[in-house]
Amino acid sequence: MNPVNYLYLAALLFTIGAAGVLIRRNAIVVFMCIELMLNACNLALITFSRMHGNLDGQIVAFFTMVVAAAEVVVGLAIIVSFYRSRHSASVDDAALMKL
């Protein structure tokens, strides 16, 4: 098997995640889809690392994980505080910018 297949898989997962962000309204699910996209990126990075025979790709994937962890903390905190004020976790309810 050609390891390029990992890249195809990563592209597919990324696309599914992106579509999920666009389709789902529950903020938590949207957030999960974002995590899915990040993981797809990580898979691609690790495959690149293998292709090029050095570990820099893994380092970037590592940093991505760290950033994702931080992002999760802040993002979930925002969702919680939003839920407190609106009693809703729907991203469509945060639509005060229209018109």
């Binding site: 992106a18 962000v21 666009l22 389709i23 309204r25 991203v91 469509d92 945060a94 639509a95 005060l96 910018m97 229209k98 018109l99």
Partner: peptide
Amino acid sequence: MRRVQNGYARSYAVSMF
């Protein structure tokens, strides 16, 4: 054109995408 600006983050995300 203004209707495009409907305030929904998901619509904007579609534009970005």
